[in-house]
Write a protein that binds this DNA or RNA. Structure first.
Lengths: 350, 350
DNA sequence: CCCTATATAGACAACGTTGTCTATCCAGCT
DNA sequence: AGCTGGATAGACAACGTTGTCTATATAGGG
């Protein structure tokens, strides 16, 4: 394909310079908002740009030096629920700054991931990259990025904090708050469905939940938890196990919405009414959370805002020393899937 | 930010040429698999490339001529369910061909969309673009693309067929088949929830469904249909209306899964059992389809494969004349949300 | 009014690759 | 041996922008 070959020529900086009667370099100065241009000249150039509909060519800019006006967004699994929200936020921030977004999937073994990353960074020399979980926690990725001196901002990393800037949310406190809410409703027997062990956030959510329960004098044993992997299927399987034991839990907290949805589906299948017989809570406020009956009580992460923030950190340029993490607030969204435990349990608990 | 400034220099074609003891142009020939290079020279160059871990710089390639090794994916709403599947397919095809993917959102008024498109095409000169619904049906987008001579492939367009290549699925036949299936189960009273009027596929699905019913002697009146907009909420609202009339429909077909999910949620709320009291069918096989109880009977579109196909059409280069649409097969996925109508209705219908 | 400092603008060389044109080499003819 | 032609390789000029250095106006101070 000779895509570029036969296209009608677009206006170049040269055309603008000619029309405005100034040098190419001066147009460049205007476009890049550099100083040393008088107001009059600036206005003339701006008008010429308007007339010719001129837009600087990214490839030429990249080649000539400074910036690439390209930001990379790397993720592991493109169909994870939060990816579309991340993109939405990233696109918004990019557009506002005149940047463009390149997306890239990074999956497989350590060596494969390194090769993919190296290839994409050498080919498309982006100004910086945003790393989403769980790839943001892979040491080899950070190593390579450091070696290549590619600026990066991580979204909700859980390991290797201190290795560069990131944006995050307090997952532990969110899980804690959810636990407190369930306790306040009167629940005393809980089931917890853990997330994928590769996502370190999964561990943090578990800790927060367990700590809040411990503070209330409750200890969750191995039979009260299930090792899931953030998938719908693992959630329904986990619920099946948790609900099959002797005194059933009256509330199940899953470390993400997909698994909570799986738990709800399983509860329906087992003939349990929600929230009368069983409360279910999730984490993420994914699109599916509103698309079940009853709608899911969950934790809303401002994923789009976090990602937009990450892109802005990249573009605005986090100076050498200042790599302070930016903390975003979560929101506990109470919907119909949680309520008080069955009367009999409530009585027993009191 | 001076992203590119202080990075360790990557190997350039010049380094490779030096190490291999050939000219720069010869390395270029090897990299691009051009003829006129002897086997021996080719091997020497390949080894030098390996040793230096050389990767051609996209910006330089773009600037120098031919290809940009960049494909654009344009969509309207980044959180539409099918976007992640599209990306997955697009990324796969791009990686296989050594291309990279730039994503771009195109939303707003006609003028806004044109400006956004013009800006992104002038800045990032991609080899071609993939257009997803509903932007693929906007005349002004196609006009601009034609004027700029930017190759494009559309995904499931519904209007302006004949204006360039596209990939698609036979939505009408799929809706027909779903109708036949419901008829075969014994249903005679139907409700239909229409999709967003901007998506032309919505109309096609409705036609297919209505035609199949007409062939069985059934006519759907205005009270049997509801104008939705592909959102969960419009689905639940539609179901509420359809189910509130005199003799209730025994089956509801929604033009997409989100609305079908809304219908299921509303049925639950109204105390109807699915599929015993009401069958519900959707269209898309979105991630949520398996994440409800009972799981949704729906039409699976091979979205990832279609998009990969579109990217390949772009990269392989659809010659000037050959812009034949590529048709993909759908699959009717039967799950738990459909079944025979209630006995009393079945008896009445016979 | 001259000299200097400062704002403003231009000339020119990168940047890393590909397209085009030209030079060389060698085999196969006559 | 001389010539032709195809295969192979190199020289050189783009491509459109920015960085650096230099030249010119303009203002300010003695």
């Amino acid at each position: 394909m000779s895509g570029l070959r036969n296209r009608p020529p677009l206006a170049t900086i040269h055309d603008v310079a000619q029309l405005a009667g100034v040098s190419i370099k001066t147009v460049s100065r205007v476009v890049n908002r550099e100083p040393h241009v008088s107001a009059g000249t600036r206005a003339r150039v701006d008008r010429a740009i308007q007339v010719l509909n001129y837009r600087p060519n990214i490839a030429a800019r990249t080649l000539a030096g400074s910036r690439a006006y390209l930001v990379g967004l790397y993720f592991d699994n493109p169909s994870a629920g939060y990816v579309s929200q991340m993109q939405s936020g990233a696109l918004r921030a990019c557009r506002a700054a005149g940047y463009h977004l390149v997306i890239e999937q990074l999956a497989g073994s350590s060596v494969e991931v390194q090769n993919q990353l190296r290839q994409s960074l050498a080919a498309v020399r982006m100004d910086g990259v945003v790393l989403s979980p769980p790839v943001c926690d892979r040491g080899e990725v950070l190593d390579l990025l450091d070696a290549l001196a590619v600026p990066h901002v991580r979204i909700a990393p859980a390991r290797e904090l201190g290795r560069g800037p990131y944006v995050c949310m307090d997952d532990g406190r969110a899980a804690q708050e959810m636990a407190r809410r369930l306790l306040a409703l009167g629940h005393r027997r809980f089931g917890f469905i853990k997330g994928h062990p590769d996502h370190a956030a999964a561990e943090i959510r578990w800790r927060g939940f367990a700590n809040a329960l411990a503070a209330a004098g409750l200890i969750l044993g191995p039979r009260d938890t299930w090792q899931g992997d953030f998938s719908f299927r693992s959630g329904s399987e986990g619920a099946r196990r948790l609900l099959s034991r002797g005194p059933r839990p009256t509330a199940i907290f899953a470390s993400n919405d997909d698994m909570a949805l799986g738990a709800i589906a399983m509860a329906h299948r087992l003939g349990l009414r929600i929230p009368d017989d069983l409360s279910v809570a999730g984490f993420d406020d994914s699109p599916g959370a509103e698309a079940v009956w009853p709608p899911l009580t969950t934790i809303r992460q401002p994923v789009a805002e976090m990602t937009a923030g990450a892109v802005n950190m990249l573009i605005d340029g986090h100076g050498p020393g200042r790599s302070e993490p930016q903390l975003f607030d979560f929101e506990l969204v109470v919907r119909g899937s949680t309520g008080p435990p069955p009367i009999v349990d409530l009585a027993a608990g009191l």
